[in-house]
Structures are given as C-alpha cells and as structure tokens.
Amino acid sequence: MLDEKTNRLVDIGRNTLRIAVIILSLVVVSVPFAYLFLNSLKPPNEFLTVPPLIIPSHFTLEHYQNIFDPTKDTVNYLINSLVITVVTTIIAVMIGSLAAYSLSRLKLPFRLSSIIAFAFLLVRFYPKITTTLPYFILMKDLHLLDTQAAVIIAHVSLTLPFVVWLMLTFFDELPKELDQSAMLDGCGPWQRFVQVILPLTTPALLTAAILTALLSWNEFLIASSVAPSNAKTLPLAVSSFITDKGVQWGPMSAMSSVIVIPVMLFALFAQRYLVRGLTLGAVKE
C-alpha cells in the first residue's frame, strides 16, 4: 500500500516538473512577442514610462491605422515580401530537391557526390555579411539593384544549400529498391521522381519549404543592401521606423506584429502535412 502511494507521489512530482519546464519554455518564447503585440496597441505616451507599463491603460489601433495609411507604402512592402518569399521558396525547393535527388542516386566516380554535397554546405560556413558586398556589386552589374529579382536571387542562393542537405538526408533514407522497382515498371527518371519519390518525401519538402520561407521572409542584411527602396521588404520597413528624429515605437510594433501573421498562418497550414513515417511498409525493416 505504502509503495503504491509513494509511486503515485513520484508520478505526480514528475508530471509537475514536466509541466513546469514546458510552461517556462513557453514563457521565454512568447513573452517578447506578447510584449511586442501589447506595445502595438499602446497609446504613444506610454512607451517610455518608468516603471514600464506592460498592459496599456487603454487599447488603441492608431498605430495600425498609421502604418496602413494610404500615403504610406506598407502594402507595397507586404507585396514585395510575399512575392520574394513565395518565389524564393518555390525555386529553392524545386532546384534543391532535384539536386539532392541526383546527388543521392547518381553513382559519380571519385566520391564526387560527397564533394559536391560538401561544397553546398561550404557556402554556408562564412558569415553572411562577407557576401553582402559581392551581392551588391553583382546586382549592380546585372542592373538588378532594387528589384525583387535581386533579393530573390540572393535568397535562393542562401537557402539552396540548406534545402539540398535536408532533402539529401531524406532521399538517402528512401530505399533504392523503390527507384529500381519504378525503373523496371517502366518509369523514366522524371516519372520516378514525381510519381514515386516526391509523394514519399512530402513531409520533408514541406519542412524545407517552411524553413526556406521563414529565412527569406525574415532576411534583413542582404535585402537591405540590394533593395533599399522599390523592392523593400517588411523587415526593412520595420527598421526604417528608427529615424533621426527618434524611434517610432508604436508603428514599429504594429508593423512587427503584421510581419508575423502570414508566417504563422503558413506554418499552421503546413504543419498538418508534416506527418512522418509515410514510408512505413515500403520495405520490410
């Protein structure tokens, strides 16, 4: 009897600890965002009070009205960001997965596959800032400065290595017999990829898509160097609230909150498809 009781107490203790850890992590992650969101609803005179006001005295939407004022370009920035992110994601995932599939299945001599795969990784080793200037000069020479294309090209080259590596891991895990079986069933390489391999790697593709989209959507450094005004993206727009006349805390918070919404919606939509274990039953383990 005593044992049973002790066991139950230990169980309760363990569960409490677990829940406490989860809540703590959640707080660490979400408090900054909650504070940002509350700030976006705060009246302008409450930003720099001492001690700081966490909950505004009253809620206001004036900052949102401010940033979506027809005289401002916020909608343009939003469109820029959307176009750049969507196009970057499509191109990077498409090219990246094709490259990864080839690397995974081609029998190249002299371990060439590994060398190429490593080369993809290599370009991610150095800090992004080192490539910012070359990108600027490249885009200038290509007469692409301040266009969406400039940002897209840069973002694709930034995200491609990541897609290749993620997909390579997945393709390597897929049994080669599936390819061979499809081959004997009469499929060419393209049919094999589209009809057999892709459906089995949908979760991986979506993971790659989500992470690529996030990277592109949030990217600041290169976008700021190659797209200062016409092709300006939302992160740049946020930074432009830091002016020589001071920081416009209200609109900045409102804009930052707006940035998050599309990403959240996308992540919510995509996570439904992130089901692993679809390959179960392909071959006997």
């Binding site: 049994p175 017999e177 599936l178 061979q180 079986s181 499809a182 081959m183 004997l184 069933d185 009469g186 499929c187 060419g188 057999v196 459906p199 089995l200 679809l278 390959t279 179960l280 039953g281 392909a282 071959v283 006997k284």
Partner: peptide
Amino acid sequence: VPAAQRDIAMVFQTYALYPH
C-alpha cells in the same frame, strides 16, 4: 538497353512496394 525497356519484372527481397 535501359531497364525500363527490357520488359522484365522483378520481385525484390524487400518487396519495394510503393508505400503511398
């Protein structure tokens, strides 16, 4: 001749059924 054009069917040790 490529495998696809040999008109041969193979049963693999691991079966290699298409899981989807």
